Amino acid sequence: MSLADLTLARWRALDTAAATRFAEEAARRVGGRLLRVEAAPHLGGTLHRAVIERAGERYALIPGGEVAIGFDVDAWQPAPEQLVSYREESLAGGFGFDEDPRVHLAQVMTPPRTAALPAVLMAVEPRELPELPALVPALLAEQGLRVPEPDEWEHACGAGAGTLFRWGDGFPAGVAPYGAGDGPHRPPNAFGLHIAFDVYDTAEMTSDPGSVYGGDGGEAVCGGYGTLLEWLPLATANRNPSTAEFLYGPEGEGMFEDFGVRPVIDLD
C-alpha cells in the first residue's frame, strides 16, 4: 500500500511499526525527518500521531480516503446546560437569535457530507497570516506549500469524530474557550494538530474565502452571546461566515495578522 492509498480506515488499522514505515516514507518524500510516531486512544480504538519536521516546521500526517465531515444539526440533542445557556444568555441578550438553537447552528455549521481526500502533511501549528489573505496562496506556493481546502481542514480537525467538537458534544463547566487553563480544547487533536483551541487566536483561512474555521476572533465572547455560542466557534464544522466576511472585507485589511493559515504539503 502506498501513501496515495492511505485512508483513515487503513491508518486506524495499522500497528505502530507499520505506521512508522508510512511516516518515514512521507518524511523522505518531502525532504523532512520523522520526529515521532505515537499511539493515542480514539473513537474506541487507537490512532497514531506521526509528526514530521521540514524546514524547521512540524507537520502531522493526515490520512485521507472517503471521509465523513460536516455536522447533522437536525440530529443534534443539546445537553440541558447548553439549552439553559442559550435560553438564559443568548436569547435574553436581545441579539435576535431564533428560539431554537438548531436554527442558529444551521447558519454557521456545514452540512453532513462525504468527501474523497488525499493523504497530506498539515502544519501542527497555524502560521500568522504574513500578508492579506488574497496573497497568501502565492506566498505558500513559493515554498512548495498550499492553503488547505475546507473539507481538508474539517477532516484534519475532527479526525472522523461526528460530534459537535473534535472531543465530543459538550464543553467543560467553568472553563473559557480561550487563554490558559485545562480543557479538552487545549491538547493536540487525534492527528497531533494544535487546532481550534482558542476562539481569539485560532481563526484560520482556507482556500474558500467564505470558510474560516477554528475561532471567531472573540466576537461571541466579547459580545456576551452566552456560553454555548462562545464555545461554538471551536466546533469542527463551524465555518464562521461573519468572520470570513470580516477577514476578506475592508475591516480586516489592518488585522489580518490576527488570523492564521495552516500550510499543507501534498504527498502525491
Rank of each mutant, 00 (worst) to 15 (best):
A23C: 11
E245Y: 00
G224H: 00
G179D: 14
G260F: 07
E204F: 07
G144M: 06
L8A: 13
V67E: 10
A116P: 00
L140V: 12
A27H: 04
W11D: 00
A39I: 07
G260H: 03
E53F: 04
V37M: 13
V221G: 08
M205P: 12
M1W: 07
P130E: 02
E99F: 05
G183I: 06
S242T: 09
F22G: 04
P111W: 12
T243K: 02
T227V: 09
Q107H: 07
F165P: 07
S90R: 04
R36H: 10
P250K: 09
V124C: 10
V84Q: 12
W167A: 09
E230P: 01
G158R: 15
Y200V: 10
G174D: 10
G94P: 06
L121Y: 00
F256L: 14
E38I: 12
A123M: 03
Y225T: 01
M109P: 07
L35A: 14
E81W: 09
E253I: 12
V30W: 05
W11V: 00
P101E: 07
F71E: 02
G181V: 09
L193A: 11
P111M: 11
A18R: 14
A203R: 12
E142Q: 15
L234T: 09
R29P: 02
R58D: 07
F171I: 02
V37Q: 13
